[in-house]
Design a protein around this nucleic acid. Structure first.
Ligand SMILES: [Zn+2]
Ligand SMILES: [Zn+2]
Ligand SMILES: [Zn+2]
Ligand SMILES: [Zn+2]
Lengths: 164, 164
DNA sequence: GCTATCATGTTATAGTATAACAACCCACGC
DNA sequence: GCGTGGGTTGTTATACTATAACATGATAGC
């Protein structure tokens, strides 16, 4: 992946490289696990990465149709199901949208910083937050299976304060 | 409100009282702030509380129609908009559903424990989690405006471990 | 090649939410 | 009282998100 957690928020990053890396990692990961990253699934993953922003399913569908006339909603939703199940894509619940996973090899919960102005999303993936949440929930007798953490606000470029 | 954060998860709580309290608090709060808690909005709030579970908008609509034939989707969505804007109701993003706010007087972010088996939802509202998230985000130059934290799993009644 | 399995195509429909404009109501000032 | 103006609700239509159900096609192991 190209750079740290905030690379998405910076004006320009080498997004071609960033997408290529993601696809290469996905290929390798699927090969290791014996998963079938078909042409369709690979292409959907590529389209998800193509903007480095949360992408909605029907936008993906529109893109797909340009090159695959027979694409229908199940086409894209099934590809997304596969990609999400195998941790290559995350769903952003508060936006009904999808983003490529920045680190599919590191097991992690979904934690996202979402800029309401430029729509960029960065994956936070902070262990301390995850552990604090898990500890508090466990302390109440609750068994945690999935954490959904979505932080909305302004990224550094769009009005955020400078890092200390 | 009737009891602590986990009262929702216990077999039986005095839910009539719990709903009455919520409505009384809402009335008082709106009176203080000069907000118009109309009959419709009050009734929708009551319906949201009626199950002490996440309720979907179209279920509310169905309930409403039993007594107000002219109710349509905007009827319920507009009431929900008002209730959410004034912190009387929370939206659970991962479920497309709505729950009554357990403590509208305490300013707080939305943090929820959601049992996938019995569908009960408890509002966590833990300051340490909120502060940890805020600190981490701020450290990256991100200005936090809204936190969405939804923890899915099993509640104590449905298979969670006992609290220590 | 045969066959079981998984993947995709295809059609239809379910579920969630908002746009746009009309009608109504009520508080306020005249 | 009367108008008037803003906020609330009614009404119709439509946009957006997602899945069901069954048919067809590709793939891999035997
Ligand atoms: Zn990820
Ligand atoms: Zn931004
Ligand atoms: Zn209750
Ligand atoms: Zn439960």
């Amino acid at each position: 992946m190209a750079g740290d957690v905030l690379s998405t928020f910076r004006g320009v990053h080498d997004h071609g490289r960033c997408t290529d890396d993601a696809l290469a990692t996905a290929e390798a990961l699927c090969a290791e696990k014996g998963l079938r990253l078909t042409a369709l699934r690979r292409r959907v993953l590529e389209l998800v990465w193509s903007r480095h922003q949360p992408v909605r399913a029907y936008d993906l569908l529109e893109d797909l149709r340009a090159e695959r006339r027979r694409a229908a909603p199940p086409t894209v939703y099934r590809a997304l199901d596969f990609l999400i199940a195998n941790r290559l894509v995350h769903r952003i619940e508060s936006l009904n949208a999808y983003v490529g996973c920045a680190g599919p090899r590191n097991p992690h919960v979904g934690q996202f910083l979402i800029c309401r102005k430029c729509s960029a999303v960065a994956e936070l993936n902070d262990g301390e937050i995850a552990r604090t949440v898990a500890r508090k929930a466990r302390g109440l007798g609750f068994t945690v299976e999935r954490q959904t953490i979505e932080i909305a606000g302004l990224c550094p470029q769009c009005g955020g304060t400078r890092a200390a």
